[in-house]
Amino acid sequence: SPRFIALCCSSSSSSDEEEQRLRSELRQRFLWTLSVMRDKLVQFDMHERVRVRARFGASDIDVLRFQVSDLETPLGVQREALLRCQDVLSCSFEL
C-alpha cells in the first residue's frame, strides 16, 4: 500500500524524531498511569470470566507481571500475588 511504502521509505531524520517524540509522550503517560495505580484497589478482568480485586503494587517494565497484595480470589484472600499480564484482559480503578 502507499502508506506502507511511505513508512518504509521515509528515512529522513525529522520523521524519526517525530516518531520518537510521540512514543516518548505515550510511554511517559503510561508510566504515570502505573504510578497512579500504586496502592489503589484495582479490579482485574481475566480470561475465562475470572474477576478479582487486589491492591496494586507494581508492574515490571515490560508489562508481563503485576505484583499485587490482598488478592480476593474465589477461594479466599491471597496476601501477596503475581498476576501474569497474559491472563489479564483489563483492569480498572477509581481515582
Binding site: S24, G57, A58, S59, A81, R84, Q86, D87
Partner: peptide, 29 residues
C-alpha cells in the same frame, strides 16, 4: 524514560524480594 523505567522496575523487584508473591492462578489461564 530509562530513569523512570529503572525506578519502576526497582519497586517491582524490591516488592517481590520482600513479599515473595506467588503466581495466581498457579497455572496460566
Amino acid at each position: 524514560i530509562q530513569g523512570m523505567e529503572a525506578a519502576m522496575q526497582l519497586t517491582f523487584d524490591r516488592n517481590c524480594d520482600k513479599k515473595q508473591p506467588k503466581y495466581w492462578p498457579v497455572i496460566p489461564l
